[in-house]
Write a protein that binds this DNA or RNA. Structure first.
Length: 1149
RNA sequence: GGACCGUUAGCUCAGCUGGCUAGAGCGCUCGCCUCACACGCGAGAGGUCACAAGUUCAAGUCUUGUACGGUCCA
């Protein structure tokens, strides 16, 4: 006994009760002798539910249908179909059920370790040529903060399509998987979770917190890797990396050491984007600009000589405590009166200069928004505003920091001239200080005006509070150096960005120059523009989770400095570091010193990893890394507590995952770099072109002699929800790919995503929900968030109308509501994926049909010579050839949607609708045709595999087993696994252009006949008779039954042979009349007249159009000759059809 | 403020260097339980290609401007 049909019973599994799986139910039924009974199909079903459903089910269309049946208090959805137990052991289920096939396919791949690849043989640092090209992709490592969403699914599907395609093409193909520790993001999530249990990070201590975070990481890394496998990613799982594992950590340590040693890493007091909540410096890219409705305050500052006052305009009055100048534009008429004067700063009592700087916007009530709000005088606070910092540098102003790391007013961080009046403000939060300062000015009659003012303010992308420009010590990478920025720009393909900015050395023939291409190419300009304005990269983060900076520092007074340090700093400027040669350097470390004040020196010693240390040629080789660290600490050096910016380690990803710099230290890593770096492609979203792509290019080129990290960059579209909003974690409108896989299957998701991937920027995905109570799909209720976004309400009512409720994925993601038994979590779905599901089912059924026709063994026979094959066989092979060529072109150009569309129409239209239909009358008795069918089906599965790996792999054993024989000129070597099978290769001589042309004509005739049948509502089984002239008769004969089969023609009669039937209709085809009879007993004369009149009118319109075009001298003289000729031919054809139609019409009257 | 993308059928989208009567899937209408597939088969309806001007023999496609929606960077 065997389960023939597998339908489904909706999503009733996993919601409590004693579920049993369908196979078990089937066995029970079979044991009962209930062979003609139903079995539940998909996944699991409640025992009681099953029994009740059975009683209410209807038998319909050969199936038992549970649609609308109420059981266990639930109404089964429309598609709830169960099936009969059949006694046909080899047949496949009637419907493709992804949930049944996917786990099995995945385990076959994993068992075979199908995606593992060994690097090429490397001799003397060179890859030995064995005729195989290398193809490699490193995965953009997902953050271990949360599960993957649809954007990841899209990105990874595209990578998998390319990976599988190249693997089938015979390339040595590596897709390197891994995850990113995502410093700030992960630490924030973990801190939040701990805080909800009342635990504070600072109370736990660093080690305990890190191990807690490690647990979180392990959990989410497992989820992510499982998601990737569930969606079919063919990564080399043996090589799975993590940005903080030993291999990557070694790379990070080594890279840092090299840059430090080369003077490209430095430390200095700089204004950073400070997040006072997470107490962390953010890079510019981590700051989000938000429009804020605030005020512009106008403060009056008295002149020191008592001759009057000036009024400054500010949005941040609290920072006035740190003002060290007032600036005015030298062009401003107001400037003359105050030139050379000084101000006494209110509250503080500090005397500060008035400086002239053309940065200052002059007041102009009719000017732009800024000028309208300007007063002409600008308070200058170098320690608390980046623009003021620049003004300060130009005018050599004092820098007075008045805030602590928490953003409160403080006199402990560089504010020394504090007055008694000002002391009252110390300790206030920046918000309270703002109010207090404004109040003070008002109370003292110095507040000139307050106006409402909307402006954009930088906010932390983590804590969402306004960032504070704040003065602190940070580590920087000098990316503005030509060796980094210049190299990133020179990497660009000159056809995409021909000119380089000033200060960048020109491209040379050096390795990697000009080799980086963006797709679509507009993104080359995004990359370029960013580097044009790049600033040095702040890489220190005040976090615990990450790579701790491998530098030990110590402050010493100038008087106590060691002789080596003093010597190194001889004549050095303040804040400029010098290399020191010391006992540390002879042990292999790098040693820098700089004057931080005229009397204080900061020494910094960078320790390389042990693996680097052991390879250095150094004087004191006895000290290993732990020994060196111990010695440093004994000498009073303290390790910098900060960690590196996450992008520092991800910037090394294409190197670190391949074992750089010491691959031989790690099992299986030797040779990876030589074989696979530069990688072939990076696919990513456009928002990280700057954050990530740029850094990988700079690092890879710097450390690998100019080699690029990858040759091509493909930027994919961003998925938006049904309201045109970006799907994002913070909005909570993301969709878990597992939800889509659950409702549609992995292939359906993949195919649909690939089919949506055009080179546009955005794609919209309206999302529905599945009710966990009833299994129904419904459109959720949306609400507006305070920020104005449309999101699904956290709690949704069951569409059943029975008062039951559920939690929407948004509700769960936003933390608004936690799902429970009463209110379970709903899954998302989207009808956008129907196309993929239907397609997977189509190929499944086409295979079922074909397999049923491939019962004979032809393996002993010589290869089929296609030139003597039937017309339809020659045609399908010609179409196969065209399809293979189109697919290859599409993949090579990253035209993913073209790949999907080409595949879809070849499989559905050509293979199923035309070929399979056409061969039905002959396939049983035609051995050659069986060979062709088997070969084409085999090829179809291969071509589909990169996009739909599961359904094709699931079918593969059956198809491999059933097909036999071969076609001369079509190479389809056997393989146990489809994933490892070869891409089809077809001899171009097999393309019969004549067959393709004849097919077009015959198909047009068949379509016209079907159209007539459709209009007449002719029964499908009704065989009709057509009466044709000699030319059409020849076409019908040449196409070997195609027209008869596809148009339901029983008899083809010679129109010239005798009397035409009186009851008939006529079609104009290629200028002749095709008379159709035996449609029905009686032809409706009036309907026939109307139909022909419509055809005639339509042809007349066309003819007028063609004649008009040909009467236009401009067209005839200027258009390309072949186009003019084409129009002439069309005119002639239309005229002939018109004549034929008129003749038919006349005959009726 | 700068840059980029989008606006084509009810919905989601194709339409390459300007040239067939502007296409697809879903949805809709009609007919079909045709022995692979109702997640199917056959047929059909449905579009002033956002708006305005320009270039051209010819514009959905090129240019300029406007409007609306979106993204990124300041």
């Amino acid at each position: 006994m065997y389960l023939r049909h597998v339908g489904w019973v909706g999503d009733v599994e996993g919601h409590g009760g004693d579920a049993i799986d369908c196979a078990q139910v089937a066995r029970l039924l079979v044991a009962d002798g209930a062979t003609d009974d139903l079995v539940p199909l998909r996944g699991k079903l409640h025992r009681c539910a099953f029994a009740k459903a059975r009683s209410g089910a209807r038998y319909q269309n050969g199936f038992w249908c549970f649609a609308g049946c109420v059981h266990d208090g639930r109404t089964l959805p429309d598609r709830s179909v169960a099936s009969r137990v059949m006694s046909a052991p080899t047949e496949l289920a009637k419907t493709y059920v992804p949930a049944d096939a996917e786990p099995d396919v995945t385990s076959r791949w994993l068992a075979a370790n199908a995606f593992h690849v060994e690097p090429a043989e490397v001799v003397d640092g060179q890859v030995a040529d064995d005729g195989r090209a290398a193809y490699s992709i490193v995965i953009p490592p997902p953050n271990v903060t949360a599960a993957l969403h649809l954007g990841h699914a899209l990105n990874n599907t595209l990578q998998d399509v390319l990976t599988r395609y190249h693997r089938m093409k015979g390339d040595r193909t590596l897709w390197m998987p891994g995850t990113d520790h995502a410093g700030i993001a992960t630490q924030t999530v973990v801190e939040k979770r701990l805080l909800s249990d009342g635990i504070k990070r600072l109370d736990m201590g660093r080690d305990a917190f890190i191990s807690k975070t490690q647990e979180w990481k392990d959990e989410y890394e497992a989820v992510i890797l499982d998601q990737l496998q569930t969606m079919g990613a063919s990564c080399d799982w043996d090589r799975t990396r993590f940005t903080m594992d030993d291999m990557c950590a070694t790379a990070v340590r080594h890279a840092f050491f090299e840059l430090f040693k080369d003077g490209l890493i430095y430390r200095g007091k700089r204004l950073v984007n400070w997040d006072p909540v997470t107490r962390t410096a953010l890079s510019d890219d981590e700051v989000e600009m938000e429009e804020v409705e605030g005020h512009m305050w106008y403060l009056t500052y008295p002149l020191a000589d008592g001759s009057g006052s000036v009024t400054v305009a500010t949005t941040r009055p609290e920072t006035m405590l740190g003002d060290t100048a007032v600036a005015v534009n030298p062009e401003d008429p107001l400037a003359a009166a105050v030139r050379g004067k000084e101000i006494v700063l209110p509250i503080v009592g500090r005397t500060i200069p008035i400086v002239e700087d053309d940065y200052v916007v002059m007041a102009d009530p009719d000017g732009d928004a800024k000028a309208q709000y300007a007063s002409g005088f600008l308070k200058v606070t170098p320690a608390h505003d980046p623009n003021d910092w620049d003004i300060g540098l130009r005018h050599d102003l004092d820098v007075i920091n008045i805030m602590g790391p928490d953003g409160s007013i403080s006199d402990q961080h560089g504010w020394e001239d504090i007055s008694d009046e000002a002391r009252a403000f110390v300790g206030l939060s920046r918000e309270d200080a703002r109010t207090a300062v404004v109040d003070w000015f008002e109370a003292n009659g110095l507040l000139a005006e307050v106006r409402d003012y909307t402006h954009s303010v930088g906010h932390s992308y983590r804590s969402h509070v306004p960032i504070e420009p704040w003065l602190s010590d940070q580590w920087y990478v000098a990316v503005t150096d030509d060796k980094l920025r210049g190299s990133a720009l020179r990497a660009q393909d000159p056809t995409q960005t021909p000119d380089l900015p000033d200060g960048v050395s020109p491209r040379a023939d050096s390795t990697g120059d000009g080799g980086l291409r963006f797709h679509p190419d507009r993104y080359a300009r995004t990359y370029y523009a960013w580097h044009d304005n790049i600033r040095d990269w702040c890489i220190s983060r005040q976090l615990w989770w990450g790579h701790q900076i491998p530098v030990w520092t110590q402050l010493v007074s100038v008087a106590d400095a060691s002789p080596e340090v003093s010597a190194a700093l001889e004549g050095a400027e303040l804040d400029v570091a010098s290399q020191v040669t010391s006992s540390w350097t002879s042990a292999g470390a790098a040693h820098l010193a700089r004057l931080v004040t005229p009397t204080e020196i900061e020494e910094a010693v960078c320790v390389p990893p042990q693996s680097t240390l052991s390879r250095l040629d150094r004087a004191d080789a006895a000290l290993d890394e732990p020994g060196l660290v111990a010695a440093l600490e004994a000498a009073g050096y303290v390790r910098d507590p900060d960690v590196l910016d996450t992008w520092f380690s991800s910037g090394l990803w294409p190197l670190s995952t391949m074992g750089w710099p010491w691959a031989e230290d790690f099992d299986g890593a030797a040779g990876l770099l030589e074989t696979f770096n530069p990688t072939s492609l990076l696919t990513t979203a456009r928002e990280i072109i700057t954050l990530w792509v740029s850094r990988m290019v700079m690092f890879n080129r710097y450390f690998r002699g100019g080699d690029l990290p990858f040759q091509d960059v493909f930027i994919h579209a961003m998925i938006q929800d049904g309201h045109g909003q970006k799907m994002s974690k913070s909005l909570g409108n993301g969709v878990d790919p597992r939800d889509i896989i659950h409702s549609h299957g992995a292939d359906a998701m993949r195919f649909s995503l690939v089919q949506m991937t055009t080179d546009t920027q955005d794609l919209r995905m309206p999302v529905d929900m599945i009710c966990p109570h009833t299994g129904e799909t419904f459109t959720p209720t949306f609400v507006k968030t305070p920020a104005g976004h449309d999101v699904a309400a956290a709690i949704q009512d069951s569409p059943g109308g029975d008062g039951r409720q559920m939690v929407s994925p948004f509700g769960a993601a936003s933390g608004e509501v936690a799902p429970n038994d009463e209110m379970p979590l709903a899954r998302n779905t989207s009808t956008k994926f129907d196309i993929g599901r239907n397609f997977a089912n189509k190929v499944w059924n086409a295979s079922r049909f074909a397999l049923g026709s491939l019962e004979d063994d032809h393996s002993g026979r010589p290869p089929v010579d296609l030139t003597s094959a039937r017309f339809i066989d020659r045609w399908i092979v010609a179409r196969l050839a065209e399809t293979i060529a189109s697919l290859e072109q599409a993949v090579d150009g990253y035209h993913f949607n073209t790949y999907a569309d080409t595949l879809y129409h070849f499989v559905w239209d050509d293979f199923c609708d035309n070929y399979l239909e056409a061969i039905k009358p002959t396939i049983r008795d035609d051995a050659d045709q069986q060979v062709v069918l088997g070969a084409v089906l085999d090829a179809v599965l291969r071509l589909m595999h990169p996009v739909c790996p599961f359904v094709t792999e699931a079918l593969w054993p059956n198809v491999s087993a059933a097909r036999s024989g071969s076609i001369a000129g079509l190479e389809l070597p056997p393989s146990d696994l489809l994933a490892l099978a070869a891409w089809p290769v077809l001899d171009p001589s097999l393309v019969d252009a004549g067959a393709v042309a004849s097919f077009e004509r015959a198909n047009e005739l068949a379509s016209q006949i079907r159209r007539l049948r459709g209009e007449r509502l002719v029964k499908p089984k009704q065989r009709i008779t057509i009466h044709v002239d000699a030319a059409v008769g020849e076409l019908i004969a040449a196409t070997d039954g195609f027209v008869e089969t596809l148009a339901g023609v029983g008899t083809v009669a010679d129109a010239s042979a005798g009397d035409l039937p009186t009851v008939s209709s006529a079609i104009a085809f290629e200028g002749s009349q095709v008379v159709v009879s035996d449609l029905t007993e009686a032809v409706d004369i009036d309907a026939e007249k109307d139909r022909l009149d419509k055809v005639i009118a339509d042809l007349e319109k066309q003819i007028a159009n063609f004649e008009g075009r040909l009467a236009n001298e401009g067209y005839v003289n200027n258009a390309k000759p072949h186009l003019v000729q084409e129009t002439r031919d069309q005119l002639v054809a239309a005229q002939a059809d018109l004549t034929a139609s008129i003749a038919a019409r006349t005959a009726i009257d």
